[in-house]
Amino acid sequence: MHRIFLLIAALTLSNLGCDTVTLDGLVGERIDRSEAQEFVGRWVSEDAEVFDFQLAKDGTLIAGVISWDEEQQRHIASDHKIDIRRCGTATYGLFQENAGRYGFVRVQLQSGKRMQFLSPDPKKFREAVESGTLDGSINPKKNNHFNVHIKAESKLTNEVLSTGKIADWNDPELTQTFRCIKRFDSGEKTK
């Protein structure tokens, strides 16, 4: 299974028994269409997996991939919606899990040629909620796992997410790096 979709699954399927961080609503403002266009193209991950990112009419980024299903002996295409938003100086990709619950990654785009999705480290977000740095709750799950649920509308949340304070609050094992191999807006190939 592709790492980005493992990342999305980890962010959005909190009932799997993993530690997760979610928001109870959207944060920041959706980036404008011209900025979102920078994400549109064919990207390859460091695992040599290829992903197409397209911009939907409503401004949502759609990540698509084709994978092989060994059991069914056929290719399967899948799409995943990513809402790219800016909160202060930081950019985030939000994945709606269900009504009122969003998984998220911090997104770093460099010159339209390199992109990283930085997944939040649940332990660091838990510490932030426990210390009062972030407004939220910690919901225990089976086997000592937990979900950190952050209040999106809180002034504390905006202060923390909109600055570089959380620059090191990501889980390096779930960081996904991509390189653009083809732009769809102009058809140009990048090296």
Rank of each mutant, 00 (worst) to 15 (best):
E46C: 11
E46N: 10
E46L: 11
D47A: 15
D47N: 15
D47W: 08
D47Q: 13
D47Y: 15
D47K: 14
A48C: 11
A48N: 12
A48Y: 14
A48D: 14
A48S: 09
E49H: 10
E49R: 13
E49G: 04
E49T: 07
E49N: 12
V50E: 00
V50F: 00
F51Q: 03
F51A: 07
F51G: 03
D52K: 04
D52Q: 09
D52S: 02
D52R: 02
D52M: 09
F53H: 02
F53A: 03
F53W: 08
Q54C: 11
Q54W: 01
Q54F: 01
L55V: 02
L55F: 10
L55T: 00
L55C: 10
L55Y: 09
K57M: 10
K57Y: 10
K57Q: 14
D58P: 14
D58F: 12
D58C: 06
D58S: 12
D58E: 09
D58N: 15
G59T: 04
G59E: 05
G59V: 00
G59W: 03
T60Y: 05
T60D: 00
T60W: 07
T60P: 13
T60M: 03
T60K: 09
L61M: 05
L61F: 05
L61P: 12
I62T: 10
I62P: 04
I62L: 02
I62N: 03
I62F: 04
I62S: 05
A63N: 02
A63F: 08
G64I: 08
G64D: 12
G64E: 12
I66P: 05
I66E: 14
I66H: 09
I66M: 09
I66W: 13
I66F: 13
I66C: 11
S67P: 04
S67H: 00
S67D: 11
W68R: 01
W68A: 08
D69N: 06
D69R: 06
D69I: 01
E70G: 10
E70Q: 10
E70S: 14
E70F: 13
E71R: 13
E71F: 05
E71A: 13
E71Q: 13
Q72I: 09
Q72W: 01
Q72G: 12
Q72K: 08
Q72R: 08
Q73K: 01
Q73R: 03
R74V: 07
R74T: 02
R74A: 07
R74N: 05
H75K: 05
I76D: 10
I76A: 08
I76C: 08
I76T: 10
A77H: 07
A77L: 14
A77T: 04
A77W: 07
A77G: 14
S78D: 15
D79S: 12
D79G: 03
D79W: 10
H80S: 13
H80V: 06
H80W: 14
H80I: 11
K81I: 03
K81W: 10
K81D: 01
K81Y: 11
K81G: 01
K81P: 06
K81R: 13
